[in-house]
Amino acid sequence: MKDIIRGKAFVLGNDIDTDQIIPAKYLSYDPSNPEEKKYFGKYALFGVPEGQSGLPSGDIRFVSEGYSSEYNIIIGGRNFGCGSSREHAPFAIEVAGGEVVIAESFARIFFRNCVNGGYIVPYEAVEKLNDKVETGDDLEIDLTTDTVKNLTKNEEYSLNPLGDIKAILEAGDVFEYAKKMGI
């Protein structure tokens, strides 16, 4: 796991469910098939209603063309990743180039899938950030101090420490973690 992650923010609202992250229509692609994997990148966050996609203006696609996004840090609101257990959701964000999701709160299966699959870092923000950060802002996350600098707005925000899950993210995924734990 990196100590510093820098990049552009993509901002979303509350209750971003897994159907918005990767619509069910695309679940017939097999994530373990190298040829089909890229489609999860192409359709990542494809189900977010247009006006809600890329706040505050809306109408910005996470992936505007091809299979990857120019944004690597997602800022959400409450209950990010609610809905189904589909691991395709954090996987799609990772395939598109996403590295971190910062939200006020997460739905638990999504959160668990982020960590156990080692796809993206799910960070809880101390305060509501999706009305402070704008899509396209340049952010720098310091994972050693659990803070985010908004380089565009010259602001700094605190994140809740990752706690118990940090060991799994540092190991790479739950398989590597279990090996270390002697399971």
Binding site: S84, S85, G117, V174, F175, I183
Partner: peptide
């Protein structure tokens, strides 16, 4: 409910955290 990684881990080990 769990994701694919958790399920694969349980499939091989019969365990989960």
């Amino acid at each position: 409910g769990v994701g694919n990684t958790d399920a694969a881990f349980a499939l091989g080990t019969g365990k989960t955290w």
